[in-house]
Design a protein around this nucleic acid. Structure first.
Lengths: 204, 204
DNA sequence: CATGATGAGAACATTTTGAGAACATAAGTG
DNA sequence: CACTTATGTTCTCAAAATGTTCTCATCATG
């Protein structure tokens, strides 16, 4: 039985790179990308390693096709959309799994009408949305009072604010979450909703 | 040819464009629009990609009809950990795919040693971490000064604070991000790092 | 010295991509 | 309806990108 143990260092590095690449991109890498990924320049050499892995039985090649590498074993780097949720912090005990609430699922973030926008500025800082954060927006043309929306004003300026109707819908208030800034009121016709905030995330 | 094939790069790009277009306009794009959207000039080439997608079964064509493309499946090729990042929203225009558009990849959140914790309390509110947020923690036993860590104090109490050594490492400061709260200093032996903050997210 | 792992890169084969002409049909207009 | 225009479809020609195979070279090791 062919085994990973029999691989040379570079072959293992190559396999590792391929697995990570697929986990990240969902498609296999090109030979050129593999070469760069393992620190060499030659496509030919990369191909030699790939061929060795195929001979070894850990991958299969779709002969001649671009990106024609398939993994034959489960990918240890595969992407998940759930994370273990280990309970509440500052609760006085070491962190432990809490029965009944055991996973956080980010599937909501990846709906088909969703997109991400990088936030600029501090206008929503009291809502915990800081400069540089990424917000997840669901594409919609309408919003309810209290929603945080991406609004296009006068077809010119885009902004992230809390949404509120006034004067029976003839006017729209866009309310920042920052006490140094003032809310703005526009005629409804000047404001177009581009999407509604459904999530926020930040990387450190 | 109706078999399930791997899509080529351009085919995937085409599918991606079509899905985004439909999400925004509710109708399918014309071939000319697809061509421009994926950066080519030839309607014929765009048609070739569309035909390939139809052969692959991810879309269906209303033969000959204008805008006669229907989506058949949720896109299995867009990674579940990737979202389009529309960065700057083009002034004066509806949100559109921007050439050179980037992606936000949540792959980082799903590492093997990561877990999620629900935050209780306001001790880190000035760092934009609010009550009810979920933080992503990488399991580690050590931290650098300035990291935000999950710390276990006296094997009894768990807390999320900014980490700082003092007195050459004999003491450890745990610093809240809330001016109403005070930083706390412990002997190093009383504090055990459980993990380091690498991300934060919130659902609305 | 013989051997094996490694790397560069040339040369070639095949796949993938692009342009655009030509035609057929759908959609719009009077 | 007749007519025009726009759009979808099919085709050929070509270029670019990628996979494959090869030779040559270096280095370490026994």
């Amino acid at each position: 039985m062919a085994d990973k143990q029999q691989l040379t260092d570079k072959q293992r590095l190559t396999l590792d790179f391929i697995e990570r690449y697929i986990a990240r991109h969902t498609v296999a890498p090109k030979l050129q990308e593999i070469a760069e990924g393992i620190g060499i320049r030659s496509r030919g050499v990369a191909h030699r390693y790939v061929q060795a892995l195929a001979d070894n039985g850990v991958i299969a090649l779709d002969n001649g096709k671009h990106r024609g590498i398939r993994l034959l074993k489960p990918n240890p780097f595969r992407s998940e959309s759930v994370l273990p949720l280990l309970g509440k912090i500052a609760a006085g005990k070491p962190i432990e799994a809490i029965p009944g609430e055991d996973q956080i699922d980010l599937q909501d973030f990846f709906g088909h009408n969703n997109f991400a926008v990088r936030v600029q500025g501090d206008s929503m800082i009291e809502a915990g949305i800081m400069d540089g954060d990424t917000v997840i927006i669901e594409f919609r043309e309408t919003a309810d009072d209290g929603d945080i929306v991406v609004a296009l004003i006068d077809e010119a300026e885009t902004t992230l604010k809390r949404f509120k109707r006034s004067h029976r819908g003839r006017y729209i208030k866009l309310i920042p979450a920052n006490k140094d800034m003032e809310e703005m009121v526009y005629e409804a016709s000047r404001v177009r909703i581009q999407g509604v905030l459904i999530g926020q995330l930040r990387k450190y």
